[in-house]
Simulated assay, not measured.
Amino acid sequence: MTMAALAFLAAAGPVGAQGAAPARTATMQSLIDCRKIAASDARLACYDAAAGAFEAAEAKGDIVVVDREQATAVRKQAFGFTLPSISIFDRGEKPEDIDEVNLPITSAVRDGHGKWTLVLEGGQVWRQIDSGELSRNPRPGMTAKIKKGAIGSYKLMVGGAMAIKVHRDN
């Protein structure tokens, strides 16, 4: 994996305005600054010290290293939420827009008003917000397809059947 494919993120570092790249931590900046040293021995010593500090910070959880595949997985898991801080994963190439997810259903129940609540793989909870009907009752193991709708809405389908409007609870 190339360095361009890695996103270096600081869990405790400051995050800029929405859409802005997060500020680099001092640990990360120290590593990058080693490149500016002209003398080979001094540059190598700088890299050794900075890499050691970086490794220690990662072990403590002060810095988290996430590759593009992991960042995409986080974006899919967060589908349905509006999270301004999710932009910390938007470094490098423009991330793919996620307009729909297809996840297995782990449970599906109807409330006293006949509205569905579905729990999907990974713990996502989606609650029906309209009075529509699914032509197939969802069951564990079936796949739910959730697509972005107009003006921040979401539609859920099971087995290609008619969609219902849903809202993500968690």
Rank of each mutant, 00 (worst) to 15 (best):
L103Y: 12
L118E: 00
Y47H: 07
A73E: 03
P138Y: 00
A59W: 10
A56Q: 13
P138F: 00
P138K: 01
M142V: 02
Q124L: 13
K36G: 04
E93C: 03
A56I: 05
K148R: 15
M142N: 09
K36E: 06
W116R: 00
L134W: 01
F54G: 06
S107G: 13
K147D: 01
P95G: 08
L103K: 14
V64T: 10
R75C: 04
D90K: 03
E58V: 14
E69W: 09
C34P: 04
G132K: 02
G61A: 05
G92M: 02
G112I: 08
V119G: 05
A78S: 05
A57G: 02
L103D: 01
Q77G: 07
T106A: 06
R68V: 06
E133N: 08
T106N: 06
F79E: 01
L156W: 03
G141N: 06
A163K: 09
M162N: 11
P95H: 07
A26P: 15
T117N: 02
G152R: 12
W116S: 00
E121L: 11
I98H: 04
F81W: 14
G123F: 05
E55L: 10
A45W: 14
R139M: 09
F54E: 00
K36I: 06
A39Y: 14
R139T: 06
I63D: 01
D33P: 01
K94Q: 12
T117A: 13
Q70M: 12
E58H: 09
V125S: 09
K115N: 14
G149H: 05
E58K: 04
A50G: 08
T25M: 11
M157W: 06
C34T: 04
G141P: 02
R75L: 10
T82Y: 15
D41C: 13
V74I: 14
A38M: 14
K155Q: 13
E121A: 13
Q124V: 01
V101C: 03
S153K: 10
I105Y: 14
L134N: 08
S153Q: 08
Q128S: 08
N102H: 09
E69Q: 13
A71F: 06
S30G: 10
S131V: 13
P104N: 07
R91T: 03
S85Q: 05
A51S: 08
A23S: 11
G132C: 03
T27Y: 15
D130C: 04
D48Y: 13
I129S: 04
S40P: 03
E93Y: 04
I98W: 04
K76T: 08
V74E: 04
